[in-house]
Write a protein that binds this DNA or RNA. Sequence first.
DNA 1: CTTTGACTTTATAACTAAAAAAGTCAGAAA
DNA 2: TTTCTGACTTTTTTAGTTATAAAGTCAAAG
Lengths: 201, 201
Amino acid sequence: MQTETRDEMRERIIEAALKRFTHYSASKTTMNEIADDLHCSKASLYYYFPDKNALHLSVLEKAGEAYFVELETAAAGKSSAYEALMEMISIRHAFGKRFCRLELFKVLRDKQILNSADIFKYARERETQIVANIIRKGVENGELITAEPEKVATLYIQSMIGLRFSMSHNGMSDDISDEEFETVRGWQTMLADIFIKGLKK
Amino acid sequence: MQTETRDEMRERIIEAALKRFTHYSASKTTMNEIADDLHCSKASLYYYFPDKNALHLSVLEKAGEAYFVELETAAAGKSSAYEALMEMISIRHAFGKRFCRLELFKVLRDKQILNSADIFKYARERETQIVANIIRKGVENGELITAEPEKVATLYIQSMIGLRFSMSHNGMSDDISDEEFETVRGWQTMLADIFIKGLKK
DNA sequence: CTTTGACTTTATAACTAAAAAAGTCAGAAA
DNA sequence: TTTCTGACTTTTTTAGTTATAAAGTCAAAG
């Protein structure tokens, strides 16, 4: 029962932090505020997490997990690669808007945070694998042709991320206006279109 | 004759600044250093340029002009769109390496600098026009098919710029290692390839 | 018209002190 | 033994200070 309770408490903390982080932002949220929300002491939080960064990463991991599950479900449900990629853009868009205050890019830029580079590398690879699977599936059913689905998937993801940066007026900031968000989405859609066409002989 | 001499002096100043800027960097160069190089007083520089930013922009304009001329010449000389785009990547790569100390991105990010946004907008549009022309030419001779060369060109340029940012470890910094430069170039080449294939049929 | 030395103003960098937040720990509670 | 906390220390941010360097000005000279 100990292990059960322990994980439950961790979960409650992550949940509380997620709420604060998404409403205000990660850097504007203090450990005391999270503790107060849970009617417990700040020291308790440190019993479950070594430091604030670890908690932050756990929050990102939780949001990321939901993101990937949704992506994988959606990808599996679509019959054509084209539809799957478009759905991916849609989901990415929704999550980007919803979780922009989690300061993902800020964490990524911060070299001090232990393991942050690894976690993001894993996330990017997982996203790339989803695209790679979509492409492989497309190749199998004759919709697409390519000798290196993995490499194409990497290029695709990096290009999509790049568009997000190069079209946004703020560059690599986590903040981005709704209008810019829509613009980026438009260009991403067009790029996906060209990719699909480019992978047919 | 006055006008003649005046422009010559402006040119000499820009030349001197360009040397200092490319060797050290724009922000590490002082107006006094430039004046000393020219064996004139700092006040003279202010007779020809309203402030340091104006001089900096003139330097960027000069480098940019050389870049565009080279691009346009190269693009005109290639018979296929594929070759033209590849040559463009090559030229872009060489200029990026050569002029990275001009702090182009830093200037772009600085909202205070008067007209900087306009100048960069013009530069991006000119680059886009070159790509648009390559695409139009490709459409004319049957190499490519698309209903909107302009829009495709915009997407192409933004994607290329985006790859530069998303692949670089430093994000939007002007500094980038030689190794990363080569990596970016590799991915840009692959993306150009997919664009070309995507614009057939 | 062009140039300059001497000048003023503005930005930068290096400290500082005060406040706030992060993080620790001995011991209490369950 | 595991979980929790009040009281504590340490670290980070912030705001304010100064000194220095660089930007920018101007009356007067060439």
